[in-house]
């Protein structure tokens, strides 16, 4: 039973071009599903649609988003927000802009638990301390009283991970959570997210442009081009033999330090032409159907 099921989701700029073209995907409880593609492919847009945080310039034109057995898009706005707030959370890309620079860390983790979920301040504080320990932050008491600028990038990202898991969500959207970090810190953070996700049995939608990262943390992945899913497959099958020419080209563009002659091949023009033609054919079909 999939915890998150997206069916034929279409999103476009208001009075503008489509951004997502009938995207479908399923994430089972406890699974990690990767969303990969180049910038502008719409991978973050899917995460935002699921969390109900699409920018105001964008509208959903069709499809369903089933979260825990309920089609979110069929619910009135207030009810939709309540359900998303209770079952899903986000690990954002840039820990510095996601934390409020003028507030201490503690309330930034606990306010949501107290104000939205109705916890007592003492319970929320206890929970925050537990989580900071779980994300391996030394001296959680001191960190609760610190300001974001007093902490390193890796520490800030740990805090956002703790904060995402605070209310035991059943789904977490991680939007490029390690792009701002250097490789050694990235490895620690990815292992931490994977460990937390496995322990808590959370479904994870993992947005990234790095296929190396996908191979380490995901079980399935969707490859996107221009808002269209070109391939949806298991990670094992994908890396053994990608089915779509565009997927194969993305894989060939990914650097591989063990084989310097292989990686870093630009996506061939013929492949771009092929996948663009598929997008055009899709739009023509959508206009007639």
């Amino acid at each position: 039973m999939s915890f998150l099921r997206v069916n034929n989701l279409s999103v476009r700029l208001k009075k503008g071009p489509p951004l997502l073209r009938r995207v479908s995907l399923q994430v089972a409880a406890g699974d990690v599903h990767g969303l990969v593609g180049e910038s502008g492919a719409g991978k973050s847009m899917i995460g935002k649609a699921v969390l109900g945080i699409l920018p105001p310039s964008v509208e959903v034109t069709g499809g369903e988003i089933w979260l825990d057995g309920v089609d979110l898009l069929s619910l009135p706005l207030a009810e939709r927000r309540r359900r998303i707030g209770a079952t899903a959370a986000l690990i954002p890309q840039d820990p510095l802009t996601a934390l409020n620079p003028s507030h201490r860390i503690g309330p930034q983790i606990t306010d949501r638990l107290v104000d939205i979920l109705g916890w007592s301040r003492a319970d929320a504080n206890r929970r925050a301390l537990e989580l900071l320990a779980e994300v391996q932050i030394p001296d959680p008491d001191r960190v609760m009283r610190s300001y974001p600028h007093e902490l390193s990038g890796g520490m800030r990202q740990r805090i956002l991970i703790a904060s995402a898991f605070a209310a035991e969500p059943k789904l977490i959207v991680a939007d490029e959570p390690t792009t701002a970090l250097d490789v050694t810190v990235q490895k620690q953070i990815l292992k931490l997210i994977a460990g937390m996700q496995a322990r808590h049995g959370t479904a994870l939608l993992f947005v990234t442009h790095d296929l190396g990262v996908v191979s380490k943390v995901c079980q399935r992945l969707s490859v996107l081009y221009a808002g269209m899913v070109v391939e949806d497959t298991s990670v094992a099958d994908f890396f053994a033999a990608p089915r779509h020419a565009y997927s194969a080209a993305l894989l060939a563009a990914t650097p591989k330090y063990t084989d310097p002659a292989a990686g870093l091949q630009p996506v061939p023009d013929a492949v771009i032409a092929q996948v663009r033609a598929e997008v055009v054919a899709f739009d023509r079909g959508a206009a007639h159907g």
Binding site: V183, T184, K187, L211, A236, L251, K256
Partner: peptide
Amino acid sequence: LLDAIPLPDPAQAW
């Protein structure tokens, strides 16, 4: 540094 690079190969676990 070398160990931390995520090689695009699911067979090589961290």
